[in-house]
Write a protein that binds this DNA or RNA. Structure first.
Length: 416
RNA sequence: GGUGGAGUCGCGUAGUGGCCGAGCGCGCACGCCUCGAAAGCGUGUGACGGUGCAAGCCGUCCGUGGGUUCAAAUCCCACCUCCACCGCCA
């Protein structure tokens, strides 16, 4: 949720943000009205409660004669309080609904929709390959990826990673975790099933609700951002506790509803995959700098894998509701001669923390922290990019030097 | 899954209907004392909301949600979590 003070003090800024996202600026005015309505209801109820408390307290020291009349008066006050409290509850609910309807205020990124991103830089040389094989062909030759049997066992968009495919994931995991720990992250294995409040608090039951699998009373997370954000829900950090950084490794589950026909081949878009996610809790004034650091760590990792990539500044209309700004790193995909999103980092400022009630104590008092997340490595797409970019004419794949220690020193993966 | 016990202001605890709208100890902060410190003494100590220029005032919060009552930490109901033991199990 956004800061209500901002809405009261500078509603036009929030309306501008809505326009940049291509969403309704009127939502801001509905929020202002709900806010005013709630404050009035609270004042009314507070005053009645105060009167009722006083009347009730006086009974204790009253004489036996006075009592019956005073109790009658207290009873009637109580009835009024109950009425006012019902009105307050309704006003609270209305405010919450209007509050949640407004996504985070965008900052600095380009306005517009999915195609209005801005390319910030391109790093590394695209490989020169004649008739490059795609990752499915390479993965099959290496006996690393088995999509046919994945479909046989679990349906479309499932796969087996076998042999060197599995080893690649383990290697990527180790490399990622080591880099994260060097940067001061705490490694975490979080739960992959969470309660509704955790999913709700991170904003994944809004526009993304159709993406989420549900099992009995739990949701399957689509990213470990969810448990890592909810980890400190309802807590207050001391100022010295931030920044705090976690690197979570978890499976991720996505229904991929509405993506029929997109990325149907191979393991680019799948229902289940593993990912290492960076998550930071920082003081709000440090959030923009932390966002740059997360991006730098993502780039460091892509560089270690020797992948050609570009960085884009995602347009406002393509941001999630919690994000104020987002950068994606896209690796080159030789088989399709296009860029493929490999990592993504979002600055959620205090939006998510306000929903999850995560604060820190500073000299200025208690205030919501800022939260940020960024992909360090999403396994299937990293493997896709590795295989395709480092392939050789014979179908063998060169292992980047940084990964070799985790693959028994192997320099090249060769078809069996 | 079964049985029993427990959840109170950072931590430990007191508290079985109105003197608890929460006491004490520890911790922490400030002050006094001191050359400095410790000890000692004193004062203070949370969150959220409303209102106000502000000081302040008012309201809410004793795991959560309901209920009884003029009045609930305290009584009733449901739920959650933790601990112990038993059973089962990777």
């Amino acid at each position: 949720m956004i800061d209500l003070r901002l809405v009261r003090d500078d509603p036009e800024q929030v309306r501008d943000s809505q326009r940049a996202r291509g969403e309704d600026p009127e939502a801001v005015d509905r929020l202002l009205a709900a806010d005013a309505g709630r404050r009035e209801a609270v004042s009314t109820a507070d005053a009645l409660r105060a009167e009722s408390n006083t009347a009730s307290k006086a009974i204790r020291s009253a004489s036996a004669d006075e009592r019956p009349g005073m109790i009658e008066r207290a009873k009637s006050l109580k009835a009024q309080v109950q009425e006012a409290e019902a009105a307050q509850a309704a006003a609270d609910a209305a405010l919450l609904e209007a509050h949640r309807a407004v996504p985070n205020v965008v900052s600095d990124g380009p306005p517009g929709g999915e195609d209005d991103f801005e390319v910030l830089r391109e790093v590394g040389a695209k490989p020169t390959l004649e008739n490059p094989r795609d990752h499915v062909e390479l993965g099959t030759m290496l006996k690393a990826i088995d999509v046919d049997r994945g479909a046989k066992v679990s349906g479309s968009r499932f796969y087996f990673l076998t042999g060197v495919g599995a080893l690649l994931e383990f290697g990527l995991l180790q490399l990622a975790m080591n880099q994260a720990m060097d940067a001061g992250f705490t490694p975490v294995i979080p739960p992959a099933l969470v309660l509704p409040h955790a999913m709700e608090g991170t904003g994944f039951l809004g526009a993304h609700a159709a993406e989420v699998y549900r099992v009995d009373d739990h949701y399957l997370v689509g990213t470990s951002e969810v448990p890592l954000a909810a980890l400190h829900g309802n807590e207050i950090f001391d100022a010295a506790d931030v920044p705090r950084r976690y690197a979570g490794f978890s499976p991720c589950f996505r229904r991929e509803a509405g993506s029929y026909g997109k990325d149907t081949r191979g393991i680019i878009r799948v229902h289940q995959f593993d990912k290492v996610e960076m998550f930071s809790y920082v003081a709000p004034e440090d959030a923009a700098d932390e966002h740059q650091r997360l991006l730098a760590w993502e780039e460091q990792f892509l560089s270690a894998l020797e992948l050609p990539y570009r960085v884009i500044d995602v347009a406002a209309g393509d941001l999630g509701s919690s994000a104020a700004r987002k950068f994606d790193c896209e690796a080159w995909l030789p088989s399709q001669a296009r860029w493929l999103e490999l990592t993504s980092t979002s600055n959620c400022t205090t939006y998510q923390a306000r929903r999850l009630n995560i604060r820190y104590r500073s000299d200025a008092g208690t205030a919501p922290v800022a939260t940020l997340n960024g992909t360090l490595v999403a396994m299937p797409r990293a493997i896709v990019a590795l295989l395709e970019n480092h392939q050789q004419a014979d179908g063998s794949v060169v292992v980047p030097a940084a990964l070799r220690p985790y693959l028994g020193g192997r320099e090249v993966l060769t078809p069996a």
